Amino acid sequence: MKTSNIRWFLPAMIAVSALLVGCKTNPPKRDVVAYEAPTPRSIVVVPVVNQSVDVDAPNYVLSSLPVPIAEKGYYVFPVNTTKMVLEQEGFYEAERIQQEPPENIAKMFGADAVLFVTINRWDAQYVVFSTTVTVDFDYRLVSKTGQELWRNSQSMSYSPNNNNSGGGALVMLISAAVNAAIARAAPDYMPLTNQAHRIALQTGKNPLLDGPYLKDAQARK
């Protein structure tokens, strides 16, 4: 090839190469942020809102929540300490706490998420020979950024059965009336409450996702 042709050919090839490089496009970067759900490691359970007429219900329910949450693999802040800290910050009423932005509550404890629980029912209905004990709860888990992570509701009812098969119909009726009166006077809400928590948080159709410490929790059982 003549020298003059080479001088013409080389710049042309360089220009074509530069054009090809300039036209090459990198594949678009996939946005995976939208697919990555927040993964809380620690949960603070705030005082329970009480819609029932039983003034003792919130303390019983609050004390029963840490175990099933910890069994799902999360670190749970001690509920009594949480309540004391909130009171020191001026939050004495559960309703007021639930009106506060979850981000503020989470930041106060350094928690990844906040669990809000409402008692809708906690009562015993008496009808002559039977008493029906009912509990009904709403659960809501919110991340430290204010994003709702999980929501669930659970209602449970129980009527004590009279298993006395001896003594005739009159004795059975009297026994049933006595049992119903006892259940109404001193209903045992905790078995139902614990069962409701297990279903809502662990075994039901919409449980909490497994936490990062699940294997450790299972090993401790």
Rank of each mutant, 00 (worst) to 15 (best):
T193W: 05
G90M: 10
T131D: 11
V32Q: 09
P78S: 04
R184S: 08
L141F: 06
P27K: 05
A124M: 08
V32L: 13
Y35D: 15
P58Q: 07
N59K: 12
R151Y: 09
V76N: 02
P38S: 10
L201A: 03
N104A: 12
Q218N: 03
K215G: 00
I6Y: 15
A181N: 13
V48K: 04
A15H: 00
T203I: 09
D56N: 14
M84A: 14
E93G: 00
K221T: 06
D138G: 06
V45H: 04
V76F: 08
Y35H: 09
Q51W: 03
R198W: 02
Y60V: 08
S52W: 06
M172F: 06
E89N: 14
A180M: 07
I182V: 15
S52M: 09
E103N: 03
V46M: 04
D188F: 10
P187Q: 09
V133Q: 07
Q125L: 11
D54C: 03
A70T: 06
L65N: 05
F109K: 08
S175G: 13
M13R: 06
F9V: 13
P58M: 10
Q218R: 12
G22T: 10
Q51Y: 09
D56A: 11
Y92G: 00
N26E: 15
E71L: 11
L65Y: 11
L62F: 09
P187A: 12
W150N: 02
F129Y: 14
R96E: 15
I6S: 10
I69M: 06
D112S: 07
K144V: 04
Y189C: 03
S130N: 11
P68S: 02
N161W: 10
G22K: 04
A113P: 02
W150R: 05
Y158I: 00
P40W: 06
K205Y: 10
M190Q: 15
L141T: 04
E89P: 03
V55T: 09
K72V: 05
K2C: 07
F91Q: 01
N5T: 13
N163T: 11
S4I: 12
K72Y: 06
D210F: 02
S153I: 07
V114E: 02
I174S: 11
N194E: 09
G110Y: 12
Y213L: 14
S63N: 15
P207G: 09
S153R: 15
A219C: 01
D216T: 05
P27C: 03
V171P: 00
Q154D: 04
I6P: 01
A57L: 07
A12V: 15
F109N: 09
R184M: 04
I43D: 00
A196L: 08
A111S: 14
A219E: 05
V46N: 03
P47W: 10
F116E: 14
S63R: 15
L149R: 04
S130M: 07
T82M: 09
R198K: 12
S52N: 09
Y189W: 12
G204E: 02
R96L: 13
T145D: 10
V21R: 00
M84S: 14
Y126M: 06
F91R: 03
L201H: 03
Y74P: 01
R7Y: 13
K221P: 00
S153M: 10
P27I: 07
A196Y: 08
P187G: 07
Y189F: 15
K2W: 07
F91N: 01
W122S: 04
R121G: 01
E100W: 00
S155V: 12
N152S: 14
Q88A: 07
